[in-house]
Write a protein that binds this DNA or RNA. Structure first.
Lengths: 339, 339
DNA sequence: ACAAATTTTGCAAGCGCTTGTAAACCAATT
DNA sequence: AATTGGTTTACAAGCGCTTGCAAAATTTGT
């Protein structure tokens, strides 16, 4: 509720001695405005400290210059890193970011999507949507610009950016095998997530490719959380023939496993090897430093933002998919198994 | 650019057989609408899948239902935790969050503030503003609702939430002293930040209260960053008479110091004790687990959001200041000095 | 049952901006 | 000097909504 009103294009028009529509044309896209006129307008706008009113602009048919970002939660470092990447890319543009956390509100997504398409934002970035979303169809029907980050839709009809989860998991497992390990435990992720499924698949495939048989008992169910990871690790450690190495589906689980292992009186990597997935910041800070599969979270955010920016600049670009590669980051948590 | 238009209040009015202003009154505040009419309108709105157009609403003088959050960067876990707290509080309300990262754009804050007051948002949450901001005056003049988080303005004229930095630092130092340490190093924070100044003050005060003299050489300049913390720690370690304990002004510096200490061939806490400040998630994950001063970051965000919500609900509430208490979290990085 | 007091509804105007269309301008052409 | 054609500017309308004011409907008191 500002007390004194801000200047409008009418004020500028008066100041510059032109009509308000000339001001509008100068300020938004250029169109045909004589150089001298443009300068007059710009000078007047500057003098008056003019700031365009986005709502009015958007109401009148212009863009809102806002990009909506829909995330499930803010409680996870993994999400915030992606947002960080999005933000970094967006600051290079003239767009601002409007954040929608769908959190606890089941089904709130649909309302958000409606509001967004109602002019609240020019585009939508969906980060790791948990459910297979009915509103995707609406977005698509309306030809509204959107990009999926870290969760492709089955139909292949959405522009999306993902990481190669299966390959990453494969390489982690392969690394352990090549180190000489034969009994490799796996702490799985939240089963209703694509990424969790793909990582399990990569683990299995590596085992198969190297002629090792897959044992159900070596897979402990985690949920990508610390507490589940801890329990899963304990479970693995208490096996009659415990694994000599553990591959956790994400770093959070791996750090928890580290804890469990220590409590079990075992040393890493001397007694048991450990690999994570994600390469969150703390992976390189802990002790020992965690060997892990780096997932380019920040990059995913950036790419997603870039894709949406491209789409906005050129509405006719076709659906695209980007799959980013993971990278094995070797640190101090792995060694050959004891003789 | 939705293809088919969304229903407007005119559509609802037609459907319900009333005038559009009745619809408007029903949908926004209540005013005087007959119960039967209200029901008709609501039914019609529901049937048509009506979603209000925020820009139009706000343009016409209504609220935007958006709260602007201005942060310096998203690169710091400390910031994202505060945002998380804000978001948690906001999801309970009908407000959404619009995020402005002032990051690299020096002086962009003023433009953002102008845009926000221009109707882009109903209120503003300023998280850890780095500079003493000239636009605070503008906000205040305009009587625009805003709250400062983790950086009070000198003038005491803003509603703000902070932590008791000095007391926290005092307690950390005191703890070390009571453990028997006499030579306690301090890794300072970014000097132009209030929090850094207060923490240094707390350190000094504890020293004085316990009859220990303050030595300039035991204060190494950090900047709240990992790399500066590392260098600062090295500097302390290389002193002719190195400290037997180090108190770092934030956890990031402390984790870096941990690294430096290890490289120096010293063990924590056997050879040297270490205390941090913040209690970021990785503090409890690393090895050894870091003893630190917990700063209720999430809570700060929540309180800030709550304060702004109160102000929005009741424009006449007076300026308030909340100072949250820190808490000494004792973990494994401290011990009495070697005999 | 009727006027007066209320409650409820409808109309018009306007928030600040974009944009189609028409008018004005200007230089170039004949 | 008059015409032509393109370039630049101005006017009007309208985006979807809120709100002051006046008219209509309903209730109340006697």
């Amino acid at each position: 509720m500002p007390v004194n009103k801000m200047p409008t294009i009418y004020d500028i028009a008066k100041e510059a001695g032109v009509s308000y529509s000339t001001v509008s044309r100068t300020l938004s896209g250029f169109e045909f405005v004589k150089e001298s006129t443009r300068e007059k307008v710009l000078a007047a706008a500057n003098k008056l400290g003019y700031v365009p009113n986005q709502q009015a602009r958007s109401l009148a048919g212009g863009p809102s210059n806002l990009i909506g970002v829909l995330v499930p939660t803010l409680a996870n470092d993994y999400i915030t890193q992606i947002i960080h990447g999005i933000d970094d890319e967006l600051t290079k543009s003239s767009y601002n970011l409007i954040l929608y956390t769908t959190n606890r509100h089941q089904g709130k997504e649909a309302t958000y999507a409606a509001a967004i398409m109602n002019g609240a934002a020019d585009a939508l970035l969906l980060v790791a949507p948990l459910i297979s979303d009915p509103y995707l169809d609406v977005l698509r029907e309306q030809n509204f610009p959107y990009v999926l980050i870290d969760q492709a839709d089955q139909s292949d009809q959405s522009t999306a950016v993902n990481t190669n989860n299966q390959k990453g998991a494969y390489e982690a497992t392969q690394y352990l095998i090549q180190l000489g390990h034969r009994r490799i435990g796996f702490i799985a992720g939240l089963p209703q997530l694509n990424s969790a499924i793909e990582r399990l698949a990569g683990y299995k495939k590596a085992l198969a490719d190297y002629g090792l048989s897959f044992h159900e008992t070596y897979v402990a169910q985690g949920r990508f959380t610390s507490s589940y990871g801890y329990t899963a690790a304990k479970q693995l450690l208490n096996l009659a023939t415990p694994p000599t190495a553990i591959f956790a589906a994400n770093d959070l689980s791996a750090m928890a496993a580290m804890e469990a292992i220590r409590e079990h009186g075992l040393r890493i990597p001397d007694d048991i090897s450990l690999v994570g997935f994600d390469d969150v910041p703390q992976a390189s800070i802990g002790y020992p430093k965690l060997t892990t599969i780096r997932q380019p979270l920040h990059q995913m955010g950036q790419d997603g933002a870039r894709l949406i920016l491209e789409r906005l600049a050129n509405p006719s670009v076709e659906v695209r998919r980007i799959t980013l590669e993971t990278e094995l980051i070797i640190r101090d948590s792995c060694a050959p198994p004891r003789a």
